[in-house]
Design a protein around this nucleic acid. Structure first.
Length: 436
RNA sequence: GCCGGGGUAGCUCAGCAGGUAGAGCGCCCGGCUGUUAACCGGGCGGUCGAGGGUUCGAGUCCCUCCCCCGGCGCCA
């Protein structure tokens, strides 16, 4: 049995009805204006808004007093007749014949002009805004586009753990939890678990919350973020870059297909999104990047990290996402495979979003030799016994393979053109904020 | 962790040669009104982030602490 709508039409559907048709709508009061001859009540639902009007003349007194009593954000059910009127938003309105207040709202604290800080304190109410509603829909379409791509290419979705015993890299930025008097941590990455799974499923992916306790005060960091990770056997770095490009394009395409109205509500210029679908994402190696930066007069040399400012300069060369590849070994993690012809370079890649948004994906071919991996772990000062099961994978039928991590929230932030990552997710965990 | 900005009415902010605390929005009352974040008049509303110090007197000067915002580093 499907879901019943009990004779209701959504605000969007009402805009398609003909003059004179009778219908019912339910939602929340978005705006209200109590005038001499009419009471205007603009109703909001998940799809949009519709203006309803109660002409005071000839209306029963109890209906008028109910309309007068209703407040912004009260939930209501309204029955009425569709009228065409140019003065109404969308060109149609509903003439009220009956009104019930389901839940009367107290004075709603958001009136316009509030500070971000205050709005974050009442995020549970702020999420009703049309802008955040549209962003949540865009996020959904991003996820849908990603998922479709995996399905089309026969990847398997798996569910790795979030409570873990060891870090993928480093240890200073982990959230510690008490696991029956043993130290455990909230996962920073599912990469190692996914690497386990490729030995049976070959191509696997997962979306899991990842946690990083780094005190990052930037507009692109969350302490808790949605981490999409992929790992596949038999794939080299280039194969994986092609996959990532297809994956990102699938998400962009889905949003452009399904969410044009919402992109307009969040005022996203769609040109860059459309361009990104038309061309191949360019690749620039670390070596080339350093040259370009030097030519721009920036004081940087081979081996230096490419920071946010440098990244922004590189962004100016491209109007689509682009790959940055082949990094100096010492800048990257121990599990990245070393280039056969250059022992100081690893087969790593980042995908940078244009317009100054920066890194969205980080990936690499993984080191598949037991001896080399063991050596790298020791070199980095880690204890190989902490990585025993991970090292095991290289002892029982090791296979060339590659993988990556994608920041879902960062991708949404770029695609929706947001100025801060906090709005890409309903309840952002950033700075020291944990409420609501 | 570092650099910069800030905490004054429910909300957004002004006030600083130290001298009895202000505006706009919201709310309440009245007026006007097919309104689009409506408009006009009046009213209610403040331990000036916390603690300590200087002073006849501190929102304003000094010290300590807390919180928030923008950015860096780190990363996705």
């Amino acid at each position: 049995m499907g879901e019943q709508n009990e004779g209701f039409n959504s605000t969007k559907q009402i805009l398609k009805l003909n003059e004179g048709e009778k219908t019912k709508v339910r939602g929340w009061i978005y705006r209200k204006r109590d005038l001499a001859d009419n009471i205007f009540i603009v109703v909001r639902d998940s799809e949009g808004i519709i203006q309803t009007v109660l002409p005071r003349k000839n209306a029963p007194q109890d209906l008028v007093s109910l309309a007068e009593k209703s407040t912004i954000e009260s939930s209501v059910v309204i029955e009425g007749i569709v009228k065409n009127d140019e003065r109404a938003p969308g060109g149609k309105e509903l003439q009220i014949e009956n009104l019930s207040i389901i839940g009367l709202s107290d004075d709603f604290p958001i009136k316009g002009g509030e500070s971000i800080d205050y709005l974050l304190d009442i995020r549970h109410l702020w999420l009703r805004s049309r802008k955040l509603t549209s962003i949540m829909k865009i996020r959904q379409s991003v996820l849908e586009g990603l998922r479709e791509y995996f399905k089309k290419n026969n990847w398997w979705e798996v569910n790795p753990p979030i409570l873990t015993q060891s870090a993928v890299e480093g240890g200073a930025t982990l959230f510690e939890v008490n696991f029956f008097n043993k130290k455990a941590y909230l996962s920073q990455s599912a990469q190692f678990y996914l690497e386990v799974m490729i030995f049976s499923l070959e191509k696997v992916w997962a979306i899991t919350p990842s946690f990083r306790a780094e005190k990052s005060r930037t507009r692109r960091h969350l302490y808790e973020y949605y981490h999409l990770e992929g790992e596949a056997a038999w794939m080299g770095m280039k194969d994986m870059m092609n996959h990532v490009e297809g994956l990102i394009k699938s998400a962009i395409k889905k949003v452009l297909e399904d969410r044009l109205e919402d992109l307009e509500i969040v005022k996203r210029d769609t040109n860059i999104l459309e361009n990104s679908l038309k061309t191949n994402f360019p690749e620039i190696t670390y070596d080339e990047a350093i040259l370009k930066l030097k030519n721009k007069g920036i004081n940087i040399k081979w081996g230096d990290d490419i920071g946010a400012d440098e990244e922004k300069v590189l962004t100016e060369y491209f109007d689509t996402p682009f790959f940055l590849t082949m990094f100096p070994k010492h800048l990257k993690s121990f599990y990245m495979k070393i280039d056969d012809s250059r022992p100081d370079v690893v087969l790593g890649f980042d995908l940078e979003a244009p317009e100054g948004y920066g890194e969205v994906v980080g990936g690499s071919q993984r080191e598949d030799s037991y001896e080399k991996l063991y050596k790298r772990i020791v070199e980095e000062g880690y204890n190989p016994s902490d990585y025993q099961w991970y090292l095991d994978l290289r002892k029982y039928g090791t296979v060339p393979h590659s993988g990556y991590g994608l920041g879902v929230d960062r991708l949404v932030t770029w695609i929706a053109g947001l100025d801060h990552i906090r709005d890409s997710i309903p309840f952002p965990r950033f700075r020291e904020r944990i409420y609501p």
